[in-house]
Measured scan of single mutants.
Amino acid sequence: QYKLILNGKTLKGETTTEAVDAATAEKVFKQYANDNGVDGEWTYDDATKTFTVTEKPEVIDASELTPAVTTYKLVINGKTLKGETTTKAVDAETAEKAFKQYANDNGVDGVWTYDDATKTFTVTEMVTEVPGDAPTEPEKPEASIPLVPLTPATPIAKDDAKKDDTKKEDAKKPEAKKDDAKKAETLPTTGEGSNPFFTAAALAVMAGAGALAVASKRKED
């Protein structure tokens, strides 16, 4: 009698068979294992007439167990938060979910874009303008004329002030004479000065007065 010990991944146990020799028993056991989907390494112990079949655990490639991950970057252009961060993800969709959660946790809500070549996400917050509040242009400074500094008044001594007054009066006198001369030139000519009769009478009076003066002097002599 021969014995078979099964150490399979899905089947474990023992069974026996009657055979004329070990070779015949081995054929029977291998057919049995094959029928039950057991495929492994076989050993035989002649002392105990025991066969053992052991399935090795399937070696799984690490790449099959853990999907390949890629590093993705997020650029934040927020109104109050600006910067960059990264995450590792199996695909862009997974990275996007992580980045949007990160942005939401930090109060950033804007327009999202993605560049597959650089594996970069960008979120930009738009500045909202309040309706009716149009931007006002800064007032242009008016052209200013530079002020001319005033010349301080120079105090005048009393004596100098009197001299100035005297000079002013002396300066006025010639001007007054000139005014009188002008008035004389502009006076109208009277009839006496221009009538020949009056001129002859005046000469006769003057001659008579002269003769009287000569006669009076002779009497005195």
Score class of each variant (00 low, 15 high):
36 N>D: 03
6 L>Y: 03
27 K>C: 03
32 Y>I: 05
14 E>R: 13
47 A>V: 13
24 T>L: 11
24 T>H: 13
31 Q>L: 10
14 E>T: 14
4 L>R: 01
16 T>I: 08
32 Y>V: 04
14 E>A: 09
54 T>L: 07
19 A>M: 07
21 D>H: 13
32 Y>E: 02
3 K>R: 10
47 A>R: 13
22 A>Y: 01
15 T>D: 04
53 V>R: 01
44 Y>D: 01
1 Q>E: 09
17 T>Q: 08
36 N>C: 07
17 T>S: 09
15 T>L: 08
10 T>D: 06
52 T>N: 08
34 N>Q: 01
13 G>S: 04
7 N>H: 12
12 K>Y: 07
32 Y>P: 01
26 E>F: 00
35 D>W: 09
23 A>I: 14
10 T>S: 08
10 T>I: 06
11 L>T: 05
15 T>E: 07
53 V>M: 07
38 V>Q: 03
28 V>L: 12
41 E>N: 14
7 N>L: 10
35 D>Y: 10
25 A>D: 01
2 Y>L: 08
51 F>L: 04
34 N>W: 02
37 G>F: 07
15 T>H: 07
49 K>N: 09
42 W>G: 01
25 A>M: 03
14 E>C: 12
21 D>R: 12
24 T>F: 15
54 T>C: 08
52 T>K: 09
32 Y>Q: 05
19 A>L: 06
17 T>R: 12
4 L>S: 06
21 D>I: 13
32 Y>M: 07
32 Y>H: 06
13 G>F: 03
20 V>W: 13
10 T>L: 06
20 V>H: 11
38 V>Y: 03
42 W>Y: 01
53 V>D: 02
38 V>P: 01
33 A>V: 04
46 D>P: 15
39 D>L: 08
35 D>V: 14
16 T>H: 13
52 T>M: 08
10 T>V: 06
9 K>D: 09
41 E>T: 15
39 D>P: 06
40 G>R: 00
32 Y>F: 14
3 K>T: 09
23 A>E: 15
30 K>V: 00
25 A>L: 01
27 K>S: 02
37 G>W: 07
27 K>G: 02
52 T>E: 10
14 E>N: 08
31 Q>P: 02
19 A>Q: 09
16 T>Y: 11
31 Q>Y: 04
12 K>T: 15
8 G>E: 03
21 D>E: 14
39 D>A: 15
21 D>A: 14
25 A>Y: 01
53 V>A: 11
8 G>Y: 05
47 A>P: 12
22 A>H: 03
12 K>E: 09
52 T>F: 07
51 F>Q: 01
3 K>V: 10
31 Q>I: 06
48 T>K: 13
54 T>A: 08
38 V>D: 01
4 L>Y: 03
36 N>A: 05
36 N>Q: 05
36 N>K: 04
29 F>Y: 06
44 Y>I: 05
22 A>G: 07
28 V>C: 12
19 A>H: 07
3 K>N: 08
13 G>I: 04
37 G>K: 06
12 K>H: 08
9 K>L: 10
47 A>I: 13
31 Q>R: 13
38 V>H: 02
41 E>S: 14
6 L>K: 05
10 T>E: 05
7 N>D: 09
46 D>Q: 15
14 E>M: 09
30 K>Y: 00
35 D>F: 09
42 W>Q: 00
13 G>T: 05
30 K>A: 00
19 A>N: 08
43 T>N: 09
52 T>L: 07
5 I>K: 11
2 Y>N: 03
22 A>V: 05
11 L>A: 04
49 K>D: 09
41 E>W: 15
21 D>Q: 14
42 W>V: 00
27 K>R: 06
29 F>W: 06
34 N>A: 02
32 Y>A: 04
8 G>K: 03
12 K>F: 09
20 V>M: 08
47 A>H: 13
35 D>K: 12
48 T>L: 12
9 K>Q: 10
45 D>F: 10
2 Y>H: 11
12 K>Q: 09
8 G>V: 04
25 A>G: 11
23 A>P: 15
28 V>A: 13
9 K>Y: 10
25 A>W: 02
20 V>R: 14
7 N>Q: 11
39 D>G: 08
25 A>Q: 03
1 Q>C: 10
49 K>H: 11
46 D>C: 13
28 V>H: 12
13 G>V: 05
28 V>M: 12
44 Y>F: 09
46 D>F: 15
9 K>V: 11
45 D>G: 11
50 T>K: 15
48 T>F: 12
20 V>T: 09
55 E>A: 05
47 A>W: 12
15 T>W: 05
39 D>Q: 10
10 T>F: 06
43 T>D: 08
43 T>L: 10
36 N>G: 06
49 K>A: 11
49 K>L: 09
33 A>M: 08
33 A>Q: 01
26 E>D: 00
16 T>N: 08
36 N>V: 05
2 Y>A: 07
49 K>R: 13
24 T>E: 06
54 T>H: 07
53 V>L: 06
9 K>S: 09
36 N>H: 06
6 L>G: 05
3 K>D: 07
51 F>K: 00
16 T>R: 13
34 N>R: 02
26 E>Q: 00
35 D>C: 14
22 A>D: 06
44 Y>L: 06
16 T>S: 11
17 T>K: 11
41 E>Q: 15
40 G>K: 00
18 E>C: 13
16 T>P: 06
49 K>Y: 09
50 T>R: 15
14 E>I: 13
2 Y>M: 07
41 E>F: 14
23 A>C: 15
28 V>E: 05
11 L>G: 04
21 D>C: 13
46 D>Y: 15
42 W>R: 01
31 Q>G: 14
55 E>K: 05
13 G>N: 04
35 D>Q: 13
1 Q>M: 13
11 L>M: 05
8 G>W: 05
24 T>D: 06
19 A>Y: 05
43 T>H: 11
54 T>M: 07
29 F>Q: 03
20 V>N: 11
44 Y>P: 01
44 Y>M: 05
34 N>V: 01
41 E>L: 15
36 N>W: 04
11 L>N: 04
9 K>E: 09
50 T>E: 14
43 T>Q: 13
44 Y>R: 02
27 K>F: 03
14 E>Y: 14
46 D>R: 15
55 E>I: 03
51 F>N: 00
43 T>V: 07
44 Y>W: 15
3 K>C: 08
15 T>Q: 08
5 I>Q: 11
12 K>P: 04
34 N>M: 02
6 L>V: 12
16 T>W: 13
55 E>M: 04
44 Y>G: 02
5 I>C: 09
29 F>K: 03
45 D>R: 13
53 V>H: 03
48 T>H: 12
30 K>N: 00
24 T>V: 09
40 G>S: 02
47 A>F: 13
15 T>F: 06
2 Y>D: 01
40 G>I: 00
42 W>A: 00
55 E>R: 05
34 N>K: 01
49 K>F: 08
3 K>E: 07
25 A>S: 10
17 T>C: 11
49 K>V: 10
51 F>E: 00
30 K>S: 00
34 N>P: 00
4 L>C: 08
27 K>E: 01
6 L>H: 03
45 D>C: 12
25 A>I: 04
39 D>K: 10
50 T>P: 02
1 Q>R: 14
2 Y>P: 03
14 E>H: 15
39 D>N: 14
31 Q>N: 14
5 I>H: 11
19 A>P: 05
42 W>P: 00
8 G>F: 05
41 E>I: 15
21 D>W: 14
21 D>Y: 13
36 N>F: 03
1 Q>Y: 13
38 V>L: 13
2 Y>C: 07
6 L>R: 03
17 T>D: 05
4 L>P: 01
11 L>E: 04
37 G>R: 06
29 F>L: 08
55 E>F: 04
6 L>P: 07
48 T>P: 10
55 E>L: 03
27 K>A: 02
31 Q>E: 03
1 Q>L: 13
25 A>E: 01
11 L>W: 04
46 D>M: 13
29 F>S: 06
51 F>Y: 03
